[in-house]
Amino acid sequence: MAFSGMMAGMDEDARIARWTAGWPAVPGVLRGPGDDCALAAGPPRGCVAVLKTDSVLEGVHFTRRDPAAWVGRKALARAMSDFAATGARPVAVLAACLLPSGGKSGAYMDRAMAGMAAAARRWGIGLAGGETTRAPVLGLTASLYGWVERKTAVARSGARAGDVLCVTGQLGGSRAGHHLRFEPRLAEGQWLARGGWVRAMMDLSDGLGKDLPRLARASGLSFLIDPEKLPRRRGVDAVRAVNEGEDYELLFAVAPERIEALRRNWPFRTPWTDFGVLLPRRLKPETGGIPFRGYDHFA
Rank of each mutant, 00 (worst) to 15 (best):
S4W: 07
G5E: 00
D11W: 10
A14P: 01
I16S: 03
R18K: 15
A21H: 05
G22T: 06
P24N: 06
P33Y: 01
D36I: 06
C37R: 14
A38W: 07
G42P: 03
L57Q: 03
E58G: 04
G59H: 05
G59V: 02
T63Q: 02
T63P: 00
T63E: 02
R64P: 02
D66N: 11
A68R: 01
A69W: 02
G72A: 06
R73K: 15
A75L: 04
A75C: 15
L76N: 00
S81G: 12
A84H: 02
A88R: 10
R89W: 12
L94K: 10
C97F: 01
C97H: 01
L98K: 08
P100K: 09
S105H: 15
S105C: 14
G106P: 04
G106S: 13
A107P: 04
Y108R: 11
R111D: 11
M113K: 09
A114H: 12
G115I: 05
M116P: 11
R122L: 07
R122K: 14
I125P: 07
G129I: 06
G130C: 11
E131V: 13
A135Y: 08
P136N: 10
P136E: 11
L138V: 06
A142C: 15
A142Q: 10
L144H: 12
Y145A: 14
Y145H: 15
G158K: 06
A159V: 08
A159K: 00
D163M: 08
L165G: 09
L165V: 10
V167P: 02
L171E: 02
G172W: 00
E183Y: 08
E183P: 00
P184T: 04
L186G: 03
L186E: 00
A187S: 08
Q190H: 01
A193D: 01
V198D: 00
R199K: 07
D211G: 02
A216E: 00
A218M: 09
S219K: 09
G220I: 10
S222P: 05
L224W: 06
I225Q: 03
P227Y: 15
P227Q: 08
E228K: 11
R233M: 08
D237K: 08
V242H: 06
E244D: 13
V254Q: 00
L262W: 00
L262H: 06
R263P: 07
W266Y: 09
F268R: 03
T270D: 03
P271I: 07
G276S: 07
R281C: 12
L283N: 04
L283Q: 10
P285M: 13
P285F: 10
E286K: 13
G289L: 12
G289Q: 04
G289W: 07
R293H: 14
Y295M: 10
D296A: 13
F298H: 09
